[in-house]
Simulated scan of single mutants.
Amino acid sequence: MLRVKKGGLKAIAEEPEQILAPSPSPSLMEEVPKLETVQENWQMLLAKALVSMPPEVLSKVVGCIPKELLIEVIKARENDPVVKLALVLLNAQRQA
């Protein structure tokens, strides 16, 4: 036989959603990146993935990626001085 303390069932009946509703864990909420951050970083993630490849694989993969997409990845970092310097050096090398 199940024994319930006096007022026990009444307390459960009055606030059922408080018992059933999961409380969000603060640590889980901090770990989930914001949508804007994910959308802004796809260019950087693609660039990191490409440069981590061996050179022979990289040249084959880059040859398969649409040029417009690669330009968009570079433009996403156009304020980066290292990217600007690399583009200047590449242009100078092509013209020589």
Rank of each mutant, 00 (worst) to 15 (best):
P33W: 03
N79L: 06
L20Q: 02
I74T: 04
L9I: 10
W42V: 13
E78F: 08
I12A: 14
S27I: 09
L9A: 13
E36A: 14
K84D: 01
K60D: 12
L50P: 04
S27Q: 10
E56L: 11
K60M: 10
L9Q: 10
S25K: 04
L46K: 04
V88W: 00
K84F: 01
P54H: 14
K60H: 09
L35P: 08
V82S: 11
A21W: 00
P54R: 15
I71S: 13
V83Y: 00
M53L: 15
L87K: 05
E31T: 07
M44G: 15
V32M: 06
V51Q: 04
T37K: 11
L90E: 09
L50R: 03
L28T: 08
G7L: 07
R77D: 09
V32W: 02
I71W: 05
L9D: 07
E36Q: 15
I65Q: 04
A21P: 03
D80H: 02
L28E: 14
K6P: 07
G7K: 09
V32S: 03
E36V: 07
L87P: 13
V61I: 05
E36G: 11
V83S: 04
E30F: 02
I12E: 07
P26G: 12
R3K: 15
P81N: 02
M53T: 05
E78Q: 14
R77N: 10
E14T: 08
S25T: 02
M1T: 12
E31A: 14
S27L: 11
N91K: 15
P66W: 01
L85R: 15
P26H: 08
L2N: 13
P24R: 07
S27V: 13
E40N: 14
I19Y: 13
E56P: 02
I71N: 14
P54V: 06
K10T: 15
I12P: 11
V88M: 08
I65S: 05
P33F: 02
W42T: 04
L45N: 12
A76Y: 04
L20R: 08
E68N: 10
M53P: 02
K5N: 09
L70R: 02
E68V: 11
S25I: 01
A96N: 13
G8K: 08
K34H: 13
G63R: 05
E31P: 01
A96L: 12
A21M: 12
A49P: 01
A92P: 05
V61K: 03
E78A: 10
V4N: 06
V57Q: 14
K34I: 05
E14C: 01
A47T: 08
R94I: 11
P81G: 06
K75P: 13
V4C: 04
L45Y: 11
A86E: 08
V57I: 13
K60P: 00
K67L: 10
E68M: 07
Q39F: 07
S25W: 00
L50W: 00
N41T: 09
K34P: 13
L85C: 02
M44E: 09
I71T: 15
A21L: 11
S23Y: 03
L85G: 15
R3T: 14
V4E: 06
S27R: 06
Q95V: 07
A13G: 08
R3A: 13
